[in-house]
Design a protein around this nucleic acid. Structure first.
Lengths: 332, 332
DNA sequence: ATGAAAGCGCTAACAA
DNA sequence: TTGTTAGCGCTTTCAT
């Protein structure tokens, strides 16, 4: 591999001149530019971005943390982030947490080591204070996540009112007994807290009953949805909910699959609301009523915000692009 | 940020000793080990992986090229690769090509610059000779792709016979007029060539008719599938195909969606075969007959092969894990 | 078992 | 406008 030194000697110039050329410095005569260009071509020279990074402390890759890339919500988010980052010549390093703190710490260490120049967290597992403290090493932006009382810049939608609206929609349709799924543990912090607040507020306002048997924690996949349906339909008929609010379309699909296999009807035996409006949910056996998230906008806004922080400029998130909407179909 | 030098002076040792400690060198006395450990903790020291990389020429990130991460086939592939890479403490840098050579070249340059220590190409756009030449800078593995006459290590399934089998299945069911979708351009090289060979062989053997109007190129998304259906149903009834072989479930779903909206029946008016066996395809209005790919195995095998090359050892791909299978459902 | 010193490929004062 | 030089943080001979 040719180095800047090789280019310099081939062009009969000093390395600094070549370096200046590389960095589009002004004040460099045209004939030398030509000589440098020729030497580079001849040597098939590519600058070592590792060396540049060590010296200049500037990198061009950003980190993305997601819980599972196979969840379409996250793959669309990553898609938007990668596209937007590429526009500014940044690469993306992806890490899946699978809800494990350890991977999150790995990524935070990459920020500390300057392997990534900034970090978009689309999933947060660890302690807010720890995460916050890593901002010392580079900018962090939370995307579709929040942390209690933290000062980490955040790009979020109003999930609470979206869930509230969906619940009111169910109640107004006459559904009283509503089950609820969350990816989190239903403690005061953590996953899906704002969604749960919307759920609780609607319950309160509409005076709907709340049963522990109708609450399901840490459900994520369609397999989990299947298990949820197993539990619901093993309940005596009069103790079953009339509708279920799920935290993702994948879960909703699992519930539906299980029901259809048992010969139950959607929404007659159990109405289902999904979350995400994933492709194909309009094409299911029973088209899914669900909440659409502005996923591309979340990704681009988070990226622009992060890049602004990395480059010490400022960016105003356009909140008007970040609206959720209830997609009414047949399942509820 | 503390450096190795800071640690050394705090521990009253030379940087070399600290470096040895970092690299788990033998022959280093216990008391010094303790002093170093203490100094590191006190200074909250993390080695700069950039500096290490510059000096040692060894990195720990691998690159992945995919055409679109939102295609579930690729997100599951990335999932498998990331998990497997993580086991050996490698990070993954992802780039989407969106079928554009430029992104592919970007990634190849990252290999040249040693930003990534190796590359898994799950999508290939550029000229084989060019790609092959980049192996000089680091190992490349093709995953679910092939290149005519190239010496790039490859992990693939037998797509040709899977498509052939699916076509025979259709023919045996009585479907004679079969349309065909490809992501490529149907030239002799490039995308989906081996699938097309299976298609052609079945056509020949079963003496099925071939019509240009039934061939669709460069279709990828469900929107493309919708457009394909538009074209088919704008044909006079007697000139329409009886079945369609699509190159992905997304496309198949688009075709189906369009048909149902027009009030046509699947498979009566047009039988559909998908590709990928994506989640939810069993739950569609008309459950989709499709070809399941061993996507997790493709990912882990490609990763193990690449890591072996990076670390100069060898790995034998287990071909028995790489079988395709036809999933028979209602759509064809 | 430990240290001194050279240098990976590049950038950025400082001079000229 | 160009060159000289001193590092960035680390690894790795070569001594001791």
């Amino acid at each position: 591999m040719a180095t800047i030194k090789d280019v310099a000697s081939k062009a009969n110039l000093s390395v600094s001149t070549v370096s200046r050329y590389l960095n589009h410095h002004p004040y460099i005569s045209d004939d030398k530019k030509q000589r440098i260009k020729a030497a580079m071509k001849e040597l098939d020279y590519t600058p070592s971005s590792i060396a540049t990074q060590l010296r200049s402390k500037k990198g061009n890759t950003i980190g993305i943390l997601v819980s599972r890339i196979t969840n379409p919500f996250f793959s669309y988010l990553v898609d938007a982030i990668e596209k937007e980052a590429k526009k500014s010549h940044y690469n993306v390093l992806i890490m899946q947490t699978y809800d494990d703190k350890k991977s999150e710490m790995n990524m935070l260490e990459l920020l500390k080591q300057q392997v990534v120049s900034g970090l978009i967290m689309c999933s947060v597992e660890g302690d807010p204070a720890t995460i916050q403290s890593y901002q010392e090493f580079g900018p962090i932006v939370l995307c579709n996540e929040t942390m209690r009382g933290s000062l980490v810049p955040t790009v979020v939608t109003d999930q609470k009112s979206a869930v509230y609206d969906a619940m009111i929609y169910l109640a107004d349709k006459g559904y009283q007994q509503i089950a609820y799924c969350t990816g989190g543990t239903l403690t005061n912090e953590g996953h899906g807290r704002s969604r749960t607040e919307g759920f609780e507020q609607a319950l309160l306002e509409k005076q709907l009953p709340f049963k522990k048997d109708w609450i399901f924690r840490q459900v994520h996949t369609s397999q989990d949805g299947n298990d949820v349906a197993d539990k619901i339909f093993s309940l005596p008929k009069e103790k079953r909910p009339e509708a279920i609010f799920t935290n993702s379309d994948e879960v909703a699909i699992g519930v539906m699959e299980n029901m259809l296999q048992r010969g139950y009807k959607v929404p007659q035996d159990l109405a289902i609301i999904g979350f995400d409006n994933q492709p194909a949910t309009s094409m299911l056996t029973v088209p899914l009523t669900t909440i659409a998230q502005p996923v591309a906008a979340l990704g681009t806004e988070a990226t622009n915000l992060l890049l602004a922080k990395i480059e010490d400029s400022s960016y105003e998130v356009d909140q008007s692009k970040l609206k959720l909407s209830l997609i009414k179909r047949k399942s509820a």
